[in-house]
Measured scan of single mutants.
Amino acid sequence: NKFNKELQWATWEILNLPNLNEEQVKAFIDSLRDDPSQSANLLAEAKKLNDAQA
């Protein structure tokens, strides 16, 4: 389904953001699992944090 694909994509993207530490990655992945419908928003937040920590 749509959420499953978005969840998989967001998870992959977050795992590959180079500037997030392990705790941050875990927190984003946990949030994705808690509410897959928020995957686009969570991915945007993760990318923003990744850029800020570059």
Results as ranks from 00 to 15, higher is better:
E13V: 11
E45N: 08
A52F: 09
K2P: 15
W9H: 14
P36K: 02
N1T: 04
L7Y: 09
A44P: 02
N50L: 01
A44I: 12
T11W: 08
S37Q: 09
K48N: 11
I14T: 01
T11E: 05
P36S: 05
N19H: 03
E13L: 07
K2S: 15
F3Q: 04
S31E: 09
D35T: 07
L49E: 05
N16V: 05
E45D: 10
I29F: 04
Q38D: 13
N41W: 11
N41Y: 14
L20E: 00
A27H: 13
K48W: 12
L17D: 00
D35V: 05
S37I: 04
W12S: 15
D34R: 14
I14E: 01
K48I: 13
K48Q: 12
T11F: 13
K48L: 05
A54L: 11
W12G: 12
L49S: 03
P36V: 04
A40T: 08
R33M: 14
F28T: 01
K5D: 15
L32H: 01
L32M: 14
W9R: 12
L49Q: 08
L32N: 00
P36A: 05
S37M: 09
A54R: 01
K26I: 13
A46T: 01
W12M: 15
V25N: 02
Q24I: 03
L20M: 02
A46M: 01
F3N: 08
L20Y: 00
L20G: 00
K5M: 06
E13R: 01
R33W: 13
V25F: 03
P18Q: 14
Q24V: 03
Q24G: 00
L20T: 00
N19V: 02
L43K: 03
N19M: 10
I29L: 14
Q38P: 01
K5E: 15
L42T: 10
A27P: 03
L20F: 01
Q24S: 03
A10S: 05
N16S: 10
K26Y: 10
N4E: 15
N1I: 06
L7H: 06
A27G: 12
L43A: 05
P18E: 13
N50K: 01
F3V: 14
E6W: 12
D35M: 07
L32Q: 01
L7Q: 10
Q38Y: 06
A54F: 08
S31W: 05
A10N: 03
W9I: 12
L43G: 01
A54M: 12
N21E: 06
L43S: 04
L17M: 07
R33P: 01
A52N: 12
N19W: 04
E45T: 09
I14D: 02
D34I: 12
L43I: 09
W9Q: 13
K48E: 15
E23V: 11
D51P: 01
D35A: 10
L15S: 10
A27M: 12
N50H: 02
F28M: 05
L17G: 00
D35K: 09
W12N: 12
E45L: 11
L15E: 13
N4F: 07
N41M: 08
D35F: 05
K2T: 15
A27T: 10
R33H: 15
Q38A: 04
N41R: 04
N41L: 08
L7W: 08
Q53L: 13
N1M: 02
N41K: 11
K26Q: 09
K47N: 10
L20S: 00
Q24M: 04
D30A: 13
T11K: 08
D51I: 05
E22H: 12
L17N: 01
A46F: 02
S37N: 08
A10F: 15
W12D: 15
I29Y: 03
K47F: 12
A54S: 13
N21Q: 07
D35S: 11
A40V: 09
I14N: 01
S37P: 04
L17I: 01
K2Q: 15
N1S: 02
L49V: 11
F28N: 00
T11M: 13
D34N: 14
A44E: 11
A46Q: 00
I14K: 01
N4S: 03
L15G: 10
A52H: 10
L42Y: 08
E23G: 12
K26F: 10
L43M: 04
K5P: 15
N4L: 05
S31N: 13
P18I: 10
E6Q: 04
L49R: 05
D34T: 11
V25T: 12
P36H: 05
I29W: 03
S39Q: 08
W12Q: 15
F3E: 08
T11N: 05
T11R: 07
P36G: 04
E45Y: 07
L15P: 02
N50Y: 01
L43T: 05
N4R: 02
E6H: 05
L42I: 12
S39N: 06
A52L: 13
E45W: 07
L32W: 02
L49T: 06
I29Q: 04
S37A: 06
S31M: 14
L49N: 03
Q24T: 05
K5W: 14
N4H: 11
F3M: 02
R33L: 14
S39V: 15
F28Y: 05
E13M: 08
S37H: 07
K48P: 00
S39I: 15
D51W: 09
E23F: 12
P36E: 04
E6D: 13
E23M: 11
L20R: 00
A44W: 10
L32E: 00
E6T: 04
Q38W: 05
D34K: 15
L7V: 12
T11V: 06
F28I: 05
R33S: 09
S37D: 04
A27Q: 05
K48S: 11
L43R: 06
K47P: 00
K47D: 02
S31H: 07
R33I: 14
A54H: 07
A44G: 06
R33T: 14
E22R: 12
S37R: 05
W12R: 06
E23W: 14
A10P: 02
N19Q: 05
N50R: 01
E23T: 14
K5I: 07
A52V: 11
Q8K: 10
P18R: 02
K26G: 06
A52I: 13
L17A: 01
P36L: 09
N1G: 06
K47Q: 04
K2A: 15
N21D: 10
L32R: 00
P18T: 08
Q53A: 03
I14P: 01
A44L: 15
L32G: 01
D30H: 13
W9D: 09
S37W: 05
N41S: 08
P36I: 08
D34S: 14
A54P: 07
W9Y: 14
A10K: 03
F3R: 00
L32F: 04
K47E: 03
T11I: 12
N19R: 03
F28Q: 00
R33Q: 11
P36F: 11
A40Q: 13
Q24R: 02
W9P: 02
V25H: 08
Q24L: 03
W12P: 02
A10Q: 02
S39T: 09
L43H: 03
A54I: 10
N4Y: 09
L20K: 00
D34A: 14
L7D: 10
N19A: 07
E45F: 07
K5H: 11
L20V: 02
D51A: 12
N21R: 13
N19Y: 14
N41V: 13
V25E: 02
I29P: 00
N50I: 01
P18V: 07
L17R: 00
Q38V: 06
